[in-house]
């Protein structure tokens, strides 16, 4: 049964990967990538790496691809099909790049990845040989232990990279005027506990204008439709 599943899922993964690069409509391209990622997760499951499989679905299919889909559905429709374009040198460069990537992956796979073939999942023992009774490699405990001992530095560096990316995104959004003062509504826990008919101290002294004072100041555009315009801008 595992063999049948493997071939079904592998075919699905390949079809998804080919579809991603060959479908003209960007939305279907993203869908094909989602299909590919889900098939990869199933392959991990067949290798008994449940944690990696779940992380694959949650992180890639669940978070990253959702954002892709968000952007593609908003800005790129079927009116702008993606296809081969660009100059001759670009196309040549892309072929060279793809060839280099292929060679690199082949080295990696032929060098180390094939060791686990023919075993029942990548069990990891003291001598690196998989045995039937071994606890499988993909359990959360073992991954957590490896991340916090052997691979601590790469793990921390990767998280810093993500943090830098997040800070950069926020900085760029602020600089481009994505967030204006006043449009940004702040909710504090106090908003839920104070009596309904009362305002806040900040509103009373005018540092945080409420709807009526803003109307008087001629800032009506942002007040009523702040939420909707903000979303349309993105």
């Amino acid at each position: 049964m595992a063999e049948v599943l493997f071939f079904l899922v592998a075919a699905g993964a390949l079809a998804g990967a080919i579809g991603t690069v060959s479908v003209p409509n960007p939305f279907y391209s993203v869908l094909a990538l989602v299909c590919h990622l889900l098939c990869l997760a199933l392959l991990f499951l067949l290798l008994r790496a449940e944690f990696v499989a779940a992380a694959q679905v949650v992180v890639y299919a669940g978070a990253v691809m959702v954002l892709y889909m968000f952007v593609v559905a908003y800005v790129g429709g079927s009116e702008m099909p993606v296809g081969p374009q660009g100059s001759r040198s670009m196309r040549l460069g892309s072929i060279v790049f793809a060839a280099v990537l292929f060679v690199e992956l082949a080295i990696a796979i032929l060098g180390t990845g094939l060791k686990a073939l023919g075993t029942e999942g990548a069990g990891i023992g003291a001598d690196g040989v998989a045995r039937a009774g071994d606890s499988p490699y993909g359990t959360p405990e073992q991954i957590g232990e490896l991340l916090l001992t052997k691979f601590l530095l790469p793990f921390e560096i990767a998280s810093f990279l993500l943090l830098i990316a997040a800070v950069g995104a926020v900085t760029l959004a602020r600089r481009r005027g994505g967030l204006h003062d006043g449009e940004e509504q702040r909710i504090t826990p106090l908003d839920f506990v104070r009596p309904r008919s009362t305002g806040t101290m900040a509103e009373a002294v005018g540092t945080r204008p409420n709807a009526t004072t803003r109307e008087r100041a001629g800032l009506t555009s942002g007040a009523a439709s702040g939420g909707t315009t903000e979303t349309e801008d993105r």
Partner: peptide
């Protein structure tokens, strides 16, 4: 499953496509 909550979130992630594709 040995990864209970993660399994839950994985299916939650896929469930999103049901809504998204339906709307789109």
């Amino acid at each position: 499953v040995s990864i209970g909550p993660l399994y839950l979130f994985a299916f939650g992630a896929v469930a999103f496509y049901g809504i998204m594709l339906g709307g789109w």
